[in-house]
Design a protein around this nucleic acid. Structure first.
Lengths: 277, 277
DNA sequence: TTGACAAGTGACCTGTCAGTCATTAGTATA
DNA sequence: TATACTAATGACTGACAGGTCACTTGTCAA
C-alpha cells in the first residue's frame, strides 16, 4: 500500500513535467527506484494509475468544496471561502492541477475523460447552488452566466501561479475575485446562457452512490484508518447505515470527526449526500 | 501545393477528433487517400505539419484582431467587434480551435509550444492596447486584470459552442460579454495583477521581423497570388520596401487592397507593423 | 515508341512503448 | 537448516510509431 503511494507521488511529478502520454512506465519506475514488474503489482495498467490520481485529488477537492458550500453559515464569507479553498487546493497540489489543465484532451481514454467530466459536473452543481443562495434577490436568468464566469476566473487566475512561478497572495486574489463576481451579479442585464442552453449542455449526471456502494467503500476504508476516534466513528456510521438508529445530530457529529482525515473526505461527502445533511 | 492543403485539411479533422499524438501519419494518409510516402513529399515531419497548421490559423486570427484593434474608429463598437471576430474565427475554424484548447500541453515539442505562446503574447498585447484605449479614464491599475478577464471570457464561452453542439447567437454572446467587460472596468477597485506581476509573466516577446524577413515572405507570396490588383499591390509594396517612395496614404491603400485575401493577412500584418500604420 | 523525369507507393527499418512471466531474493515459520 | 510463501526483478514480447527508399506509375516532348 505504501508502494502504491510512492508510485503515485513520483508519477505525479513526471506527469506534471512531461504530460501523461509522454511519460513511460519505465521512467516512473526508474524515478521510484523499483522495477517495472513492481509497478504492475500495484496497478493493473498505466491508465489505472492516472485514474487513481484523478480520483484521489478530485474526491478531495470536490468534497472540500461541497462541505464549504453546504456548511458555511455566513453568506458574506461563502464566496471568499470558496475561492480560497479552490486556489489553496490548486496551490498545494500544483502538480496535479497542471495535469488537470493540460490533459483535458479528449484523446485520452474515454473512461478517464468521463471521469473528469463527472467531477467537473459535481463542481458546477456546487457553484450553481452557491450562486442561487448568494444572489437569490437578483434576476435568476443570469445565474448560469455567473457560474461560467466563476469557472473562467478560476481557470485564468490559476494559470497565473501554476505556470509562472509567482508569489501568491491568496487573500488579495480571493478578495479581488469576490468583488468581480459580486459586480457581475449585481449589474449584469444581458445573460447569454439560458435555462434551455444549460439543459443541452448538462448531460445526465451519474446517479448517486447506492447504500451498498457506500458500505463497500466504508468497509474498505476502515482497514486503512488507525486513529481510534476516527476508526470508531466510521464503525458507528457503518452500523447506522446497516441499522438506522442514530439521530441526525449524532450522524453529523460522527461525520465531523472524520472529515479532516484526507482518507475520509470522500466517504464523508458520500454520507453527507446520503443522509441529506 | 494542393496536396499540402488536402493533407492539412484532413489532418485537422483527425487532430480535432483524436488529438495530435493519438493520430498517426498512416491514419492521415489513409484519410487523404494517399500513401505514406506522399505525406513526406509535402512535409518533412509530423511536427512540421502541426506547425504549419498553427501558423496558418494563428497568423490569420492574429492579423484579423490586430486590424480591428488598430483600425476600428468607434470606441463604442471596438470591444464588440473584437469579441465578434474572435468567436467568428473560433466558430469558422472550430476544428483548429479545439486543437488549440486541447493541445496546450507542454508535453509537445518545445518549439511548437513557444510558437503558440508567441501568438498568445501578440494577442495579449492587442487586448492590452484595446483596454488602454477604451478605459483610459478609469484606474489604470486594473488594466491587466481586465486583460485576463477578457481572456477568461473568451476561453470559457468558446468551450460552450466548441464542445457542445450549440446553436450560436454571436450577437447576443458578444453584447453580453461587452456588458460584462464594461461592468468590470467601471466598478473594479481591487485588482490582483500588478504591473510588477505582469513583468514577471511577460517573457521578452520575439523581435519584430526585419525588413529582409518581410521581403522574403513577400517575394514568396507574390508567386501564389493570381488576382491582378492584389498582385500589383504586393509588387508595389515590395518596391517601396526596397526603395521608399510612396506616401503613407498610398501604402495604407495598397495594404487595404490585399488584407482580405487570406494568403495576405499575415504579410499585411507585418507590413502594418513595419510602417507603424 | 522511346526515354526522361516527376509523382507516388508501401514494404521495411529503427526505435519505443505497455505489459508479461520465468526466475530470484527476501522473510518468516517449522 | 529446510520449507513455504510473497515480493520483486528485468529480459522479453508483440504492437505500433515515425520516417526512409528502392521501386512503380503516369506524363510529357522528341
Amino acid at each position: 500500500m505504501a508502494k502504491k503511494q510512492l508510485i503515485m507521488e513520483k508519477a505525479l511529478e513526471l506527469f506534471a513535467k512531461q504530460g501523461f502520454e509522454a511519460t513511460s512506465v519505465q521512467q516512473i519506475t526508474d524515478h521510484c527506484g523499483i522495477s517495472k514488474g513492481a509497478f504492475y503489482l500495484s496497478f493493473k495498467s498505466k491508465d489505472e494509475l492516472i485514474s487513481a490520481l484523478i480520483d484521489h485529488f478530485m474526491m478531495q477537492i470536490t468534497s472540500d468544496i461541497d462541505y464549504i458550500v453546504k456548511n458555511t453559515v455566513s453568506d458574506e464569507k461563502l464566496l471568499y471561502a470558496f475561492y480560497y479553498k479552490i486556489f489553496e487546493n490548486f496551490n498545494d497540489h500544483s502538480d496535479f492541477a497542471k495535469i488537470l489543465i493540460n490533459e483535458q484532451t479528449q484523446s485520452m481514454n474515454a473512461e478517464l475523460f468521463s471521469k473528469i467530466r463527472h467531477y467537473d459536473q459535481l463542481m458546477e452543481k456546487n457553484i450553481l447552488l452557491m450562486v442561487e443562495r448568494l444572489y437569490s434577490h437578483v434576476d435568476r436568468s443570469i445565474k448560469y452566466d455567473l457560474v461560467y464566469c466563476i469557472k473562467g476566473f478560476m481557470s485564468m487566475y490559476s494559470h497565473l501561479f501554476l505556470f509562472f512561478n509567482i508569489p501568491l497572495d491568496l487573500d488579495v486574489l480571493c478578495h479581488s475575485l469576490v468583488e468581480k463576481t459580486n459586480l457581475l451579479a449585481k449589474h449584469t442585464t444581458l445573460p447569454f446562457i439560458s435555462e434551455e442552453l444549460m439543459r443541452i449542455i448538462e448531460q445526465p449526471c451519474q446517479e448517486e452512490a447506492t447504500k451498498e456502494q457506500i458500505l463497500e467503500i466504508l468497509t474498505q476504508k476502515l482497514e486503512d484508518i488507525e486513529e481510534p476516534i476516527e476508526k470508531e466513528s466510521l464503525l458507528l456510521l457503518k452500523q447506522d447505515l446497516l441499522n438506522p438508529a442514530f439521530s441526525p445530530a449524532i450522524v453529523k457529529g460522527l461525520l465531523e470527526n472524520i472529515r479532516h482525515n484526507p482518507h475520509c473526505k470522500w466517504i464523508s461527502f458520500l454520507l453527507r449526500r446520503y443522509y441529506k445533511l
